[in-house]
Write a protein that binds this DNA or RNA. Structure first.
Length: 644
RNA sequence: GAUCCCGUAGCUCAGUUGGAUAGAGCGAUGGAUUCCUAAUCCAUAGGUCCCAGGUUCGAAUCCUGGCGGGAUCGCCA
């Protein structure tokens, strides 16, 4: 008997018992075991309501009969796990023999090669695309969520038994990087990340900000021109015709003017702006392969990528393969050709290619080639998806992005489904909610963006302060090592402890707590278990009959609480893999550590003061807990510390 | 206007394949340290599960209609 075979065994007993009551197999299988709300009620419970109409009897009475039938079935089985089967109201509750359960669970936790690993039913080959940054600015809190979810989901899936290819698609071309390039040409003055001592991505990001500052200056000056006045007047006329504004604006006029120009900024950039012209000219020359422009682009992108590498390494994120949009942005053309050939796409009068969304019960059209023949983001995604399925035998391709892109991926999957029906069911969009600040969205123009590198520094600093409060004899290197691990543990745990779909509200002023349900709490729990080992002069080797006797000796409420949590681990991993949800792991770890902390603090469970089999049993249980915490933390990218 | 996501304790969130008394952390209040690390533990207070109908033996969970918040709906990414 092992953890995974407990429930099939119980279902088998259930089916045999119900058969003896003349209940059909189908009805029997529709009854699910659940966990009773209180441990005293038992380890599993079976609600009998659904049997009432079948057996024409009351649920409590049925529960009595079923319990008796199950006891009879069990009497013939050669398995001692179940100690009692009782009817409690309309439920049949099953209680396990504590020592037997402890033996099964702890033995498995200690001897399995990676407790809970390989627990998925059908191992597959997956690809996970995540991060996907733009090369015009450093990463912020939103990217951190993406990076951590992508990395963690991949690690969890691998642990569960899948093969996972982690890939990144870096958006290194387009108007945004040209903006940084224009600003650098104007004000760069030959400076480099080295010469200024700035991390490469921040260095380039500063020029992106510089471009926007210059644009703001230019825009404000333009607002005094006749052209600007005409645009404003034209807008006023239109609003009045539509009945949205009165003829006499009165004192509202200045506010309206301001609001109009706030909203007109993008259109100004696309029409009147000289800086806009420069950026577009830069993009045009880039696309024409102009040597000068390509050289500058290469240089600035390399700076950014060096910066990204540092951030990724510190976050513990690694990719098997990195795609660059500059290589892939044309790749969807052949998909467009295929779609046209098959009559799935259509050509418009002015030469653009589009997909009619009514084909898939949606409204409108999606352009796949502009009338000037250039590709769009969707074209690229179609091409790269197809390429990936050709290159790998993928069972699943997962895209990790913010939920603002839900529509994009819905359309992408629908189009792929039309073109290649064999991809049906293999595409997944793991979309996560936005990370907002207490004041609302992060806005670069208001300087409220939380920078990823700064955030990691701050977390490590907070951890360092906490360490210095506790110790005055640690050397600097050890303080650094611990503060980095603790700070990152806090950050990673916090970011992953939300269900991905949840919008995260992040308060940088309160920052991330080190108390309660946090990464440091889990690290601390691990360190305390390890301190038991140190106190014992190293974990003793307990095997054979001595181990069986030791585990059979366990049985107090606190001990069994820990054992039950351990027994949940393989199931929770399956759940985390199925749902692509790291918060299953964070939640599990907190519960496990909490149950062990209660035991640890209890005077009756002081391991070093105990003797005999119970002491051995607690030692084994403690080691199983430590091993499982370490495994679980690893899945969310957190490294343990032997001492905190 | 349409579509999608969300609405649960003062705050931040679990629970949403229908099941027993709706949970956790933070914050509040009180307690535990001669004892394996107090970054801990124990206890108390705190709820019209947004509202109204419906389905069901049973609804925070499913359905319908409202209300509130967010996102998206481009020859942008």
């Amino acid at each position: 008997m092992n953890i995974e075979s407990i429930d099939p065994f119980l279902r088998d007993v259930r089916d045999a018992a119900l058969a003896s009551l003349d209940v059909s197999e189908a009805t029997a299988e529709s009854l699910d075991f659940e966990r009773p709300p209180e441990p005293e009620m038992g380890d599993r419970g079976l609600p009998c309501f659904q049997l009432a109409p079948v057996l024409k009897d009351s649920p409590p009475s049925i529960a009595e009969d079923l319990a008796e039938a199950m006891r009879e079935v069990l009497a013939d089985r050669d398995e001692i796990l179940v100690s009692s089967v009782d009817a409690q109201g309309p439920y049949v509750n099953i209680t396990f023999e504590p020592g037997r359960l402890a033996d099964i669970v702890v033995t498995q936790a200690l001897t399995a090669d990676g407790f809970g690993s390989g627990s998925v039913v059908d191992p597959q080959e997956w690809m996970v695309e995540f991060s996907a940054p733009n090369t015009n600015k450093p990463q912020h809190l939103g990217h951190v969520r993406n990076d951590l979810i992508g990395e963690s989901v991949s690690t969890i899936a691998e642990f569960g038994g899948h093969t996972v290819h982690r890939v990144n698609l870096i958006n290194d071309r387009g108007i945004h990087i040209c903006k940084s390039m224009v600003a650098y040409r104007k004000d760069g003055d030959g400076e480099t990340p080295e010469s200024t001592g700035t991390k490469g991505d921040h260095f380039v990001g500063d020029y992106y900000v510089r471009f926007n500052d210059l644009l703001t200056e230019e825009y404000e000056a333009w607002q005094q021109t006749d052209d600007a006045q005409q645009e404003f007047d034209a807008w006023l006329d239109e609003e009045r015709r539509a009945g949205r504004l009165p003829d006499d604006l009165g004192e509202q006029r200045p506010q309206l003017r301001e609001a109009f120009f706030e909203g007109f900024r993008d259109e100004y950039f696309n029409t009147y702006s000289d800086l806009g012209d420069e950026a577009r000219e830069m993009l045009r020359r880039w696309e024409a392969g102009d040597d000068d422009v390509r050289r500058l682009w290469r240089t600035m992108n390399d700076w950014v990528l060096e910066g990204f590498d540092e951030t990724y390494e510190r976050l513990g994120v690694e990719f098997e393969k990195v795609y660059f949009e500059s290589d892939t942005y044309e790749i969807g053309r052949r998909v467009v050709e295929e779609g046209l050939d098959q009559g799935i796409f259509e050509k418009t009068a002015d030469g653009a290619v589009r997909f009619d969304l009514e084909r898939v019960d949606m409204e409108g059209h999606k352009i796949l080639l502009r009338s000037d023949g250039t590709t769009v983001y969707m074209t690229q995604d179609l091409g790269t998806a197809l390429e990936r399925f050709e290159e790998y035998e993928l069972d699943r391709l997962i895209y990790v992005t913010g939920d603002e892109q839900d529509y994009h991926f819905q359309v992408l999957f629908e189009i792929l489904g039309e073109l290649y029906p064999e991809l049906d069911g293999k595409l997944r969009h793991l979309s996560y909610g936005m990370v907002d600040l207490p004041e609302g969205k992060m806005k670069s123009r208001e300087g409220t963006v939380v920078d990823a590198d700064d955030l990691m520094d701050e977390m490590a600093k907070l951890a360092e302060d906490a360490i210095r409060e506790r110790y005055d004899d640690l050397d600097a290197a050890e303080i650094d090592r611990r503060s980095e691990r603790i700070g990152l543990a806090a950050l990673k745990y916090y970011m992953l402890d939300f269900n991905p779909r949840t919008n995260v509200k992040f308060d940088p002023k309160k920052s991330i707590d080190f108390q309660g349900r946090t990464g440091p709490y889990c690290l601390y729990g691990y360190a305390r278990v390890q301190s038991i080992g140190r106190r014992l002069g190293g974990w003793p080797d307990i095997g054979g009959d001595r181990r069986t006797d030791a585990l059979q000796a366990l049985g107090t409420d606190r001990e069994m609480e820990v054992v039950r949590h351990l027994s949940d681990w393989p199931g929770r991993i399956r759940e985390a893999v199925d749902e692509l949800d790291p918060s299953e792991v964070t939640g599990y770890l907190f519960e496990l550590v909490k149950s062990f902390s209660s035991l640890y603090n209890d005077p009756d469970h002081r391991i070093v003061d105990l003797e005999g089999p119970r002491r051995d049993g607690l030692i084994l249980l403690s080691r199983a807990v430590a091993d499982t915490i370490e495994l679980g933390l690893d899945l969310i990218g957190i490294d343990t510390l032997e001492e905190m």
